[in-house]
Simulated assay, not measured.
Amino acid sequence: MSLHWTLIAGFLYGEIATLILLLIPFISASRWNKLFKSRFFKGLENQLIYYFYVLVAILVLFFLDALREMKKYSEESAHTEGNAASHLDTQMQQHMRLFRAQRNFYISGFSLFLCLVIKKMVMLISQNACLEAERHAAMKQATSASKAAESLMSSGSAKDESTLEKKLKETETELSTAKKDLESMKTQSENLSTEYDRLLAEKDRLERKVKVLDGGDDKNTKKDD
């Protein structure tokens, strides 16, 4: 494997490690969000966005180059197999080149895909942390409104009955609004959890494919030796 493809393969393994780290269950979304919102990451935010798009552009170029080589060697391999006079060594070399082109195609494709997946996961984690904070605030508001209603009911008197009823209605309205906000946040949190599980399943599928490709690469390397 050439140097640049070795670097891309190493980058792919780094992406897989990053995904595993982001999916660790005992690290909450709020902790990740604090890290993402830290002064260090805030200072690098503009530069990171720039480098991210540069990296995506580079991966796209390597992906297209691998696709071109795969198509080229596929046609040459078909032509060699159709020629009865071709030597077995020549056919083996064509198959080897085709396999390497396919390997590079999958490595660059997976690297590009996981790069976008990580960006999406970071955004989902940040949104989930914000929803958690809003849910806690809504719960506190609902609890405060409930306590205020109980206090008004227990301390009411006959002369202040109309005032208490008005305050009680206002309190009930606030409580109803807080409950609606809580249900909406719960629905959004469930949607984020579903998306999170889907990304985890996609990550597992990609890891299995990468292991299969690495196994095939090792076998062909032994054949070259």
Score class of each variant (00 low, 15 high):
M96D: 14
K203E: 08
N104M: 04
T177I: 06
S162G: 06
T194V: 15
G82D: 07
L152C: 13
G109K: 03
S146E: 12
V122Y: 00
W32L: 06
H87K: 13
L64P: 01
H136A: 11
Y106E: 09
F11D: 03
K179V: 03
T177Y: 02
F62W: 11
E195M: 10
I49N: 11
I118D: 04
N83I: 02
I8T: 02
L182R: 06
F26H: 06
K166G: 15
F113G: 03
D65A: 13
R68A: 13
L131Q: 02
E45F: 03
S86M: 12
K120Y: 12
A84P: 02
C130H: 12
Q127N: 15
A17I: 09
A66Y: 00
E76R: 07
T80F: 06
V56W: 00
L59N: 00
M70Q: 09
R135F: 12
A149T: 05
K219M: 09
F99K: 00
S193N: 12
R208S: 14
S77N: 15
T173V: 05
H136F: 01
D181S: 11
K186N: 05
M121H: 03
Q93L: 11
T173C: 04
M92I: 08
K222P: 01
K169W: 10
D217E: 13
F63T: 02
S30Y: 02
S162R: 08
K219R: 13
N33D: 14
I27G: 03
H79F: 12
F11R: 04
K147A: 07
L164D: 12
D224P: 00
A101F: 05
M96W: 02
D65C: 05
Q141P: 02
K180D: 10
R135K: 11
E75F: 07
R208L: 13
D218P: 00
E165C: 14
I125Y: 00
A78E: 15
H136D: 14
F52L: 11
D224S: 10
Q91W: 05
L3G: 05
Y53R: 00
V56G: 01
Y51G: 03
A84R: 13
L21I: 06
M139Y: 08
A137N: 07
K42I: 04
L55T: 04
F113I: 07
D181M: 06
E134L: 09
F52K: 01
V122E: 05
F11Y: 14
T90L: 06
A201W: 07
W32F: 15
H136N: 11
K222Q: 12
F110Y: 06
K222W: 05
F41S: 06
G215V: 03
L3D: 09
M185T: 01
H136R: 13
F62D: 03
M185C: 07
F36Q: 03
V60D: 04
K72F: 12
K167M: 14
R103Y: 14
T80Q: 04
I16P: 01
G82T: 04
L131D: 11
K223H: 09
E81V: 05
S28A: 10
L23C: 04
H136Y: 08
S86E: 14
F11C: 01
S2K: 00
A201D: 15
E174I: 05
H4P: 10
W32I: 04
H79T: 13
A57Y: 00
I118K: 09
A149I: 10
A158V: 14
E134A: 07
L124N: 10
T143D: 15
S74R: 10
K159C: 08
Q102K: 13
E132T: 06
